[in-house]
């Protein structure tokens, strides 16, 4: 049985997070989720647009995506990107709950002949995997368990905060000690180490613009991963993945460390465990720090 959902890939899917998109598409096919993209989707504004762009316009960016999603049907809107989820969910909930926002966003959309009735659900794909697909089905789909692979499950911030334990966020996990990522890792047949830094922040977009402010946050995450002797770190967030991977060189320069730890997406682990091609399905060739041990399992 296939479930159709409306897919919001987000800008990172076309660049720094291309390997999240590719591996997610692969596991979605295996798990019977049809991801139909929002036609001609635009940027959500991430966590920075508002400073210059203002609030109503930033909310309106998501409103346009939602109006188009609704034009494609009543299916739930899903996204794998933490920032996309936060902004799109925010706009949707603000329009549902606040009459003024509802009217104003429809006035803005109306200028272009569009409208949105705030009737859709906006969901993070990890919540869908837990609540709709279920861990049992994920486990049953595994053909090549990642035996012997030690993984630090690094959830980061915005995948769980501030919505994971809310009704509209799908109530799929808790904030301080979320389980879902370790569950994915173990479902894939790998070992999830007890990773204290699991919900530590990498600095998000501040890490991109002013790495000096947050490089120590990333060092702490890498430090614990190294101490626990993991083969790789797995994360659900495209910005977390890029930040932690691309700044390892700068961190080593600054602190005299020797980190060289692969940072992969949970979806890459699952794609390999589901028997997919290491590059064609799991996009492991798109990681800068290679994770040969994962690719080996796939052979």
């Amino acid at each position: 049985m296939t479930t159709k959902m409306t897919y919001y890939p987000g800008c990172s899917s076309e660049a720094s997070g291309a390997h999240l998109d590719k591996s997610l598409q692969s596991i979605a096919r295996t798990l019977g989720i049809e991801l139909e993209p929002i036609e001609d989707w635009n940027c959500c504004g991430a966590s920075v647009n508002h400073i210059k762009g203002g609030h109503a316009p930033t909310t309106a960016m998501s409103a346009r995506n939602l109006a188009q999603a609704k034009a494609q049907g009543n299916q739930d809107v899903v996204t794998p990107c933490a920032a996309c989820f936060l902004n799109t969910h925010y706009a949707n909930e603000a329009m549902r709950e606040d009459k003024q926002v509802y009217e104003e966003m429809n006035e803005a959309l109306g200028a272009a002949g569009r409208s949105y009735d705030a009737s859709l659900n906006v969901r993070h794909i990890c919540e869908v995997l837990i609540n709709d697909v279920g861990l049992d089905k994920i486990r049953e789909s595994v053909k090549k368990p990642l035996k012997g692979l030690k993984v630090a499950g690094w959830v980061g911030c915005q995948t769980v905060r501030p919505h994971a334990a809310t009704e509209r966020g799908g109530n799929f996990d808790e904030y301080d000690n979320p389980r879902f990522l370790d569950d994915f890792i173990e479902a894939a047949g790998a070992e999830a180490v007890d990773f204290k830094a699991r919900t530590n922040c990498c600095g998000g977009s501040v890490a991109v613009m002013s790495p000096d402010k947050t490089i120590h946050l990333m060092r702490d995450i890498l430090q614990e991963a190294q101490e626990r002797g993991v083969d790789c770190i797995a994360t659900p967030c495209p910005l977390c993945q890029t930040n932690l991977e691309m700044y390892q060189g700068a961190i080593n320069d600054k602190y005299g460390t020797h980190f060289d730890i692969p940072v992969v997406f949970y979806s890459q682990l699952l794609a390999v465990a589901f028997g997919g091609d290491p590059d064609g399905d799991a996009a492991l060739n798109q990681n800068i720090i290679k994770a040969p041990k994962i690719a080996q399992v796939a052979k």
Binding site: N42, G45, S47, N49, H50, G53, G54, H55, A56, P57, T58, T59, A60, M61, A63, R64, N87, Y90, A91, A94, D98, Q100, V101, E104, M105, E107, A108, L109, G110, A111, A112, R114
Partner: peptide, 23 residues
């Protein structure tokens, strides 16, 4: 189309003194 929507949203934001609802 996006520009039309965002221009209108900016106009809305300027119209009322609050409007900082978001993100």
């Amino acid at each position: 189309e996006l520009k039309t929507i965002l221009d209108k949203a900016r106009e809305i934001e300027e119209r009322h003194k609050g409007g900082g609802k978001g993100n």
